[in-house]
């Protein structure tokens, strides 16, 4: 009784300590918490998954499963285009989702382009690529620049619109060279595939801490029908909902939460080489569950950054809710006591 009453006049410094502990402890001692995926994230995941040769290739030997060989033999006809529009300040939120999407693409052999008009984002692209490829190459698969992905890198902002519109016709003509100065038409990912323009490169995934994704919706989507997905900081997410509702934006990963959800989907399906299915999402197999365990070493730490951060965020949120409830109980008890005294 006294405890709750004391809560009423609790010194704010105790609150500070609790919050600090609630944020730091989950980061030091990771634990498994449930991550439920939301529709905008699932939509984005599904769309990228539908581009995979594991879904699209012909089942040559007729065994009902697309094997790795069959997927490799398939002439790629889909790709995604990633536009990085942020600097290092929003990296804590955006970087994990970029890594998760790239990882998804590599596991499912979906070719991707990376691009930016911010000079400061060019190293972020390199970092994301190296984080993903380094870890996956440890498993023995070789990932080649120019074949599995093309890094267009930095292009001056003045070329933004010309490139954006030019890719409706031919990406090789619009951007000409990748970041290393190779002509796009000489790279295997362009030369040996059917990927030419938005018809194949049917998803633009743009990560930013602003409403930059809009320019893709206005210019590229309305003219060429390309799907636009966005990765946003949590603060900006609310502004994007109208576009999700109107279908102008196909999917969204918002903040750390969106990144954590995407990481989860990648671990459940892509890592096990499974096609996304809503049914399996609710009744996961053991193999899927094993990958979800973030306390084990099945998944490298770099690939669970969002979930680790999300743990801290969740605990802090719950702590605040608990504080609010306790505070209110104390308030009511006090009021009751006062009423009695009257």
């Amino acid at each position: 009784m006294n405890f709750i009453k004391n809560l009423q006049g609790l010194d704010r410094r105790y609150v500070f300590v609790f919050i600090a502990v609630a944020i730091i402890m989950p980061l030091i001692f990771p634990f498994n918490s449930l991550t439920y995926t939301t529709t905008p994230v699932e939509n984005l995941y599904q769309l990228i998954d539908s581009y995979s040769p594991y879904v699209r290739a012909d089942d040559l030997n007729g065994d009902g499963i697309i094997s790795e060989e069959e997927a490799i033999a398939f002439k790629q006809d889909r790709a995604i285009f990633m536009d990085f529009f942020h600097d290092a300040s929003t990296m804590p939120e955006l970087f994990p989702m970029e890594v998760a999407v790239m990882r998804h693409c590599i596991y499912r052999r979906v070719p991707f382009f990376t691009f930016t008009i911010m000079e400061v984002a060019a190293p972020i692209i390199e970092e994301a690529i190296s984080v993903v490829t380094d870890e996956i190459q440890k498993t023995g698969r070789v990932i080649e620049r120019g074949k599995d992905y093309i890094n267009i890198g930095y292009k001056p902002p003045a070329l933004y619109l010309p490139i954006l519109l030019g890719m409706g016709d031919d990406i090789a003509a619009a951007v000409e060279t990748d970041t290393d100065g190779n002509r796009i038409e000489n790279l295997p990912m362009y030369r040996d595939t059917a990927i030419r323009n938005y018809t194949q490169m049917n998803l633009v995934y743009e990560t930013s801490g602003s409403d930059q994704g809009l320019s893709w919706m206005i210019y590229a989507r309305s003219r060429f029908g390309v799907n636009v997905g966005v990765g946003l900081t949590a603060v900006m997410a609310a502004d994007q909902y109208p576009y999700l509702q109107s279908g102008q934006c196909v999917g969204m990963t918002a903040g750390l939460k969106g990144a954590a959800e995407y990481e989860n989907l990648v671990d459940m399906f892509a890592m096990n080489n499974l096609t996304f299915s809503k049914g399996q999402l609710d009744n996961p197999t053991e193999a899927m569950m094993a990958n979800l365990d973030i306390t084990s070493d099945t998944v490298p730490t770099k690939f669970k950054m969002a979930r680790l951060g999300m743990n801290a965020q969740s605990v802090a949120h719950i702590l605040i809710i608990v504080f609010i409830i306790l505070g209110n109980i104390g308030y009511f008890l006090e009021k009751k006591k006062q009423n009695k005294n009257l």
Binding site: E119, P123, E126, E127, S130, R145, T177, D180, G181
Partner: peptide
């Protein structure tokens, strides 16, 4: 050619067109 000294450069070759 500008680089990020913290991240460094991952490729085998740097180019300038």
């Amino acid at each position: 050619v500008m680089l990020n000294p913290v991240v460094g450069f991952a490729g085998e070759e740097i180019s300038f067109l």
